[in-house]
Amino acid sequence: MIPNGVIPADDQRAADIFECSLRSWRAAKRWQDIPGLVLLREGGGRRARVYPEVQLLAARAIEVNARKRGEPPVYDLPAVPIGISHPDDLLDLEEAREALPAERRPSLSAWKSYRYGSKTQLPAADFVLGGKEVDGGVVGGTEFWYRHTILTWDENRPKPGWPEGTGRPAGSKDSVPRGGTRQGEARRQLVRAALAKSPKITAAVLAPMIDVHAVHAERLLREARMERVGRMLADDPDLTAAAVGETFGVNRDVAGRLLRDNGGSDVDSEDRSDTGRLLDANPHLATGELAAAIRASEKHATRLLREARMERVGRMLADDPDLTAAAVGETFGVNRDVAGRLLHEARANA
C-alpha cells in the first residue's frame, strides 16, 4: 500500500537516486543495506518493489555525507505513516480486493477476471507506477487504485436481491469515449500557473494546493513540465539536460527523460566532449570513473562512454579495415563480447 501523501519509488527510481544501474541495485539488494527503509510493496519475480521516495533520498544524502567524513553511515530516515487507513491510500490489485468487506470480497480468480476479463470490470487505475507513455496511454507498470475508488465501485455493484435488470448490462461499452472532467482541466490550469510562478515547485508542495494525492500531483506536475520543455525546445533546439535540470530543480536523469520524451537529446555536447577527452587520456576508462569525473549517474555515464568508444572504434576501422575484436578489447580493457558488439555496430555504421 502507498499511504496517503507518500510519493512512491520503484527499483528504477531507487537506482537513479543512488546513481547506479538497475541491475546493480537489484543484484546487490541495496534496500537490505538501509536500516529502517520501509518496503511499501514486497518485490520478487515480475512483482514490482515499492519504496517511499523520501526515505531513499534521505538515505542517499546520509551515505554521501558519511563518505565525505570517512565514517560509516548512520541512518535516521523520515517516518512513513503505516497501518493507518485513509480514503486516498493507493492499493495494488491484491490490496484493493482485501479492502472490500469480507462478505463482499470475491475470490482471487474472480477478482482478476474483473480486471482482465470482459464482463464485470474494475474502474480504471488511478495511478500506474513505472509505466511508459505510448501514444497517449500508459504501457506496463503496476496499477494502483485509491481506496475510495474501490469502495465506491463496490457500493454501486448490484447486490443479492436487487431487482433484475439493474446495473449495467454485461459486455456493454461506452457509446461515447470518456473525456476529461472540468475539475481535471481546472487542476491542470492551476498546476501550469504554479509552475510558471515557481518553476522549482515540487509535487509535495503542489498536492495540498490543488487538493490531490501527492502521486496525482506528481503526474500533473510532469505533464506541465513536459509542456514547458516542449516550448523551450521550440525556442532552443539545442536545449540541454543541464538547462532543464536547472530550470526545474531536478536531477540529470529526470531532466533527461523530460527532454527525451519531447524528442530532444538528453546528452549534452559538453558531456560528450569531456568523455572523449577522458577516454583519449585513459582508453581503459571505466563507467564509475567517468560518472565521478563529470558528476553524472552511472546510467548516463554508461551511455556516454559507449558513444565515445563507438566513435573511437570507427576511427580505428578507417585506419585498419581488418580490425579485430581482440584488438578492440585490448584497447579499452573490455571483454570479447563487449568488444565484438562495438566492432559489429561500428562496421554497420561505417
Rank of each mutant, 00 (worst) to 15 (best):
A15W: 15
A15S: 13
D16V: 09
I17V: 10
F18E: 06
E19V: 09
E19F: 15
C20G: 05
C20Q: 11
C20S: 02
L22Q: 06
R23T: 04
S24Y: 14
W25Q: 04
W25T: 03
R26D: 00
R26C: 01
A27R: 08
A28Y: 07
A28W: 08
K29P: 01
K29N: 01
W31F: 07
Q32D: 04
Q32I: 01
Q32T: 07
D33C: 01
D33Q: 10
I34V: 13
I34R: 07
I34M: 04
P35S: 03
G36T: 06
L37N: 03
L37K: 05
L37W: 07
V38W: 03
V38F: 06
L39T: 09
L39F: 10
L40T: 01
R41H: 08
G43C: 00
G44S: 03
G44M: 05
G44E: 02
G45E: 00
A48D: 00
A48Y: 07
R49D: 00
R49C: 00
R49A: 00
Y51H: 04
Y51T: 02
Y51I: 01
P52M: 04
V54P: 03
V54E: 05
Q55S: 02
L56D: 06
L56C: 07
L57T: 12
A58V: 05
A59S: 11
R60N: 02
A61Y: 11
A61S: 10
I62V: 15
E63S: 14
A66N: 13
A66H: 13
A66Y: 15
R67H: 14
R67E: 12
R67V: 02
K68C: 12
K68A: 08
R69D: 11
E71V: 13
E71F: 09
P72M: 09
P73N: 06
P73V: 05
P73Y: 12
P73E: 09
V74H: 13
Y75E: 09
D76G: 15
D76M: 15
D76F: 15
L77T: 09
P78C: 14
A79H: 10
A79Q: 11
V80S: 07
V80L: 14
P81Y: 12
P81H: 13
P81F: 06
I82K: 08
I82P: 06
I82Y: 13
G83Y: 15
I84L: 09
I84D: 02
I84W: 15
P87G: 02
D88F: 10
D88G: 01
D88A: 01
D89G: 05
D89F: 10
L90E: 00
